[in-house]
């Protein structure tokens, strides 16, 4: 399947970009040029050089090292949130779509309530209520992404459960758990995969936005959004500071979106070219 997918140009580009960031994140785990927190004396705001490949920031810290650690953070949060939304959002979606009835109604209402506000605004309010910090940031961006997954999976599950073979399986007395496990879930993989990429990109963007507003992942972590907001002060004296974190962010988000588009096209050919 992957082979087929890679023939899709958008998916291919997205996959390459994503692999690149996955590589940098893994690389950062074992090697960075310097420690991301290390302050070099008399070397603030240096332009790229042999010693500092991407230059230094206003305190004299190596930008490349910070970007590398930053990729770990962004990617990590993206994948984590994608994962949690599968575990929570997709399970709830399947349950809701398969069983219907009261459970379904209540769940739909809850998700509606969560989605009544645009995602960033909701994430902001959650952070405002709980206070900042790594955990709370992840919590807030996760909360925001769960309904995205839920809705998609629920409608897929509804379609699936109304199919004849499921109805007859139920009539024959097969256990609900078995039906869900061996029929509903496998047939919902498409929307789940597509939505996971969407959740992932949303989470990355929202985390960066919170960081940019100074309410997200706190220092010392070199989160890209925070790096960008710090570079704002130097827009005149050192504009090179704002190029890399922004570009990385754009490319990473782009990669997840291209992958999600490609997945959808490939697995659901009706929508191709949309």
């Amino acid at each position: 399947m992957l082979k087929k997918l890679l023939k899709n140009r958008g998916f291919f580009i997205g996959f390459c970009l994503f692999s690149f960031f996955a590589f940098t994140a893994l690389l950062a785990a074992i090697w960075t040029p310097y420690s991301y927190q290390e302050v070099f004396e008399n070397s603030a705001l240096l332009k790229p050089s042999a010693q500092f490949w991407l230059g230094t920031d206003d305190l004299g810290r190596d930008i490349l090292s910070r970007l590398l650690i930053g990729s770990q953070l962004s990617l990590g949060i993206g994948i984590l949130v994608g994962g949690i939304s599968i575990v929570v959002g997709a399970s709830l979606g399947v349950i809701s779509g398969y069983f219907g009835g009261k459970v379904d109604q209540i769940l739909v209402q809850i998700m509606n309530a969560i989605q009544a506000l645009p995602s960033l605004l909701l994430a902001l309010f959650v952070v405002a209520i709980l206070g900042g910090g790594v955990l709370n940031t992840i919590l807030s961006v996760t909360l925001v992404s769960i309904p995205l997954m839920y809705r998609m999976v629920r409608s897929a599950a509804i379609v699936e459960s109304s199919k004849e073979y499921i109805v007859s399986a139920r009539a024959l007395g097969a256990s609900d758990f078995r039906i869900i496990k061996s029929h509903i879930f496998p047939n919902c993989t498409t929307p789940i995969l597509v939505q996971m990429a969407v959740c992932c990109s949303d989470a990355i963007l929202n985390t960066a936005a919170l960081g940019f507003l100074g309410l997200g992942i706190p220092a010392p972590y070199p989160e890209w959004g925070t790096m960008l907001s710090d570079s704002k002060t130097f827009i005149e004296t050192a504009p090179q500071l704002m190029t890399m974190p922004g570009l990385c962010l754009l490319l990473l988000i782009l990669s997840t979106q291209l992958m999600s588009d490609g997945l959808r096209d490939q697995l659901d050919p009706k929508l191709r070219g949309r």
């Binding site: 927190q37 206003d58 305190l59 220092a219 010392p220 710090d230």
Partner: peptide, 13 residues
């Protein structure tokens, strides 16, 4: 203050 805080944080670490 924020930047000074980051420097101090790194030192204290």
């Amino acid at each position: 203050g924020k930047k000074l805080g980051e420097l101090m944080q790194a030192d204290l670490a």
